[in-house]
Design a binder for these strands. Sequence first.
DNA 1: CAGTGGTCTAGACCACCAA
DNA 2: TGGTGGTCTAGACCACTGC
Lengths: 250, 250
Amino acid sequence: MSHEPARPKYQRIADDLRASIDRGEYQPGDRLPGENSLAADFGVAPLTVRQALGLLRAEGLVDSRKGSGVFVQSFRPIRRRGIHRLRRDGWGSGQTIWSADDDRSPDVDQINVHEDVAPPEHIARVLGLADEETSCVRGRRYSMDGRPVMLATSYLPQTLVAGSPITQAETGPGGIYARLADLGHEPVRFREEIRSRMPTGEEAARLSIPADRTVLKLVRTAFDAEGRVVEINDMTLDSAAYVLDYEFDA
Amino acid sequence: MSHEPARPKYQRIADDLRASIDRGEYQPGDRLPGENSLAADFGVAPLTVRQALGLLRAEGLVDSRKGSGVFVQSFRPIRRRGIHRLRRDGWGSGQTIWSADDDRSPDVDQINVHEDVAPPEHIARVLGLADEETSCVRGRRYSMDGRPVMLATSYLPQTLVAGSPITQAETGPGGIYARLADLGHEPVRFREEIRSRMPTGEEAARLSIPADRTVLKLVRTAFDAEGRVVEINDMTLDSAAYVLDYEFDA
DNA sequence: CAGTGGTCTAGACCACCAA
DNA sequence: TGGTGGTCTAGACCACTGC
């Protein structure tokens, strides 16, 4: 008889609370009992309950507000489609694994544009910049229902975009890809690379997420018809807010 | 004069250690000083150092072994290409954001096949199964250099694959997609959906990851030429082990 | 058997929020 | 002003590793 190694208390408590939330005993927006109260209920020390809540918070299931309490996150992830393409009729509808909000337009703030900036080394390399060559950097933040969900920073070769609307805060209809097309460098191919890591202090602050919630780094590289890299968009996503979606033919 | 709210000690210590690792002061495989030693160095309590190490462990930067120490993870993520397509010459080479191992073949174990299984409700819905209709379930685990990196479970309609090699552990050259083609249901289109969440206890155990390391859920849905869903592959990835890569035309 | 990390306890002080 | 979560301390016991 092989007895399983006991799963630690704090993990069992996390599983308990997660199950309660999944069963709907706590609805989105509801406040969980206080830590001391939970500690008494489960018969453990407050710190043990804190560890359990830490797992749920890192996961994005709950959101704890200092001085107020721990609240169940309303979980409606955003579906981000990486490949936009007309769908044949009858395909795709209702056949996704996770329900998620689709095609809603987020609010944008913290827009800033800087010209003649030396980008990070790994960006400069992929952009194919020569030594001393600079870039135009466009930053912004996206929010959904008042909740920040993504930071994005675009890097473009300075020599390519100097004097164009791309160096302005407002780039006009179609955005910077339309303006790149105006300049004869329409993006025709993209690469998106995705990794998971901890947020920096600044990222956590701007996204209003706890320090132990991982973010998804999503870096989109845009190529023009000659195969030149014309833009790199470095995105930082709240990992609890998104479902990424890619569709493609065999 | 707005003074920034002080970043907590444990986060500053985590940043310190992360920077030391990035600078190469600790090489992959190296053992970090013990918790008590670090606590003395930083002038804080052992638990505070533990919190800092917890962040690095959740991130996958370090790996702590009970009774032995905390070791820097050798960081060589695996590049998983979601879209296989011939690249035009000169594209893509050396232009990726993150360096990663490419096209290495992982080891596979924990292979199991079960027929006539009732799949989870959300799988049954996407598979388009009628009530009581069952599926064939194929599970396996992938490892790289002895380190488990991914769990995968495929669900196929039982009526579609009954009696075919798909119900065997060994499916033959080309795998189950080739066998589906033999059956007249070649997959011609795919959807991949990606989410981040905490591992279950079983997932953490099979992947040998700590309970606070997020996993990436990657669910691939395969459609045949008639638009029927012929397979769902539910994958669980160690988020610290992978770079996901998608390339596509505008 | 000495040292390590994993878990857990008891309790302190603080900033913040709501009544 | 009382309760909340956030941080931090001091210390206990255990399982495991490696000498």
